[in-house]
Design a binder for these strands. Structure first.
Lengths: 170, 170
DNA sequence: TATTGTTATACTCTATAACTATA
DNA sequence: TATAGTTATAGAGTATAACAATA
């Protein structure tokens, strides 16, 4: 599938051929493949792909409130509850009341969670090798860096912007 | 979120810091953001993100059977039926019986579908700008190329491999 | 008998609404 | 009154099973 476009040269579109270079569909396409592959690999560890996403966010961004986590994951707060219940039961994550505002729960990775996340990532190597088979190691590294940088900033700001000004198209 | 790792330099992991560079979680993370942004933009066009993925696959790989499409999308064949019903009703896609094997439906993009796909991709520009805000144009182009190349090959071969040899871990 | 596509149905994921406690 | 988190519940997404047509 998706033939053509070999190597990284930027294809010059033909005269009438209005070549769009939108990554959206490709992103979803690959993410789905990755998720399906990951599920079977992660199952023995008692984890699901979404757990790994949450753990990854917590490792990268550090501890945060459930609401902030929901914002980052672009997930409804109600679903975060169940997600964290799973992770807390497995002692991968810790919820503690914020001293400043006792309504809040501050969520953080436990030491065990950090270790487990690393193990899971190792286990996922084969799934990733499979999905990214067409890329060589250097390209995979480049992809990782791009994805990581694109993940910076996050929609937290965007979510806040909407709350302050609902007219904003976000 | 996801601080650090500025620019494309390959971070050298610290001594005890076993830095994994797995793209799986990031891929899902960004794909979800992209999907949520895309939904609102696509709604006026009567399309959903998954429709765009299917149309994109059909454009890149050309016409194929429903089964092949299901394999490429890593979607159950039953769901492809509904997906194609939507697209066919909107005259974006065409189903015709294969002359060689009358059990098969050959699915292909209509001219209208090709045009509509291009329009949709234009409409998605703002959503993509939003999600990939942290990347400059050159980096976005690189990302597009990497995603596109990674999408090559596809799991069609993999699916066939399973059918021929169920023991294969795919 | 096996395969392509379809329909009917059950299961999982995700979001909306009502509730508790803090502020 | 408003906000953080929780619970209960309904809607959408996805897969499994039985069926029709063709090979």
């Amino acid at each position: 599938m998706f033939r053509g476009g070999g190597k990284l040269g930027h294809m010059t579109a033909g005269p009438g051929e209005h070549r769009e270079r939108r990554s959206g569909a490709l992103l979803e396409f690959l993410a789905r493949r990755m998720r399906l592959r990951s599920e079977s690999v992660l199952a023995p560890l008692g984890l699901r792909p979404r757990h790994l996403v949450a753990l990854t966010v917590l490792r990268e961004a550090g501890e945060m409130s459930q609401q902030a986590l929901a914002g980052s994951l672009q997930l409804d707060g109600t679903n975060v509850v169940g997600l964290l219940n799973d992770l807390e039961t497995a002692d991968l994550v810790e919820r503690r009341r914020s001293p400043e505002d006792r309504r809040r729960h501050v969520v953080s990775l436990t030491e065990h969670g950090t270790k487990r996340l690393n193990e899971a990532e190792c286990a996922l190597a084969s799934a990733e090798d499979d999905v990214l088979a067409a890329l060589d190691p250097v390209e995979r590294d480049t992809l990782y860096d791009l994805l990581r940088r694109a993940s910076s900033g996050g929609p937290a700001t965007c979510t806040e912007a909407i709350r302050d000004n609902p007219d904003v198209l976000c």
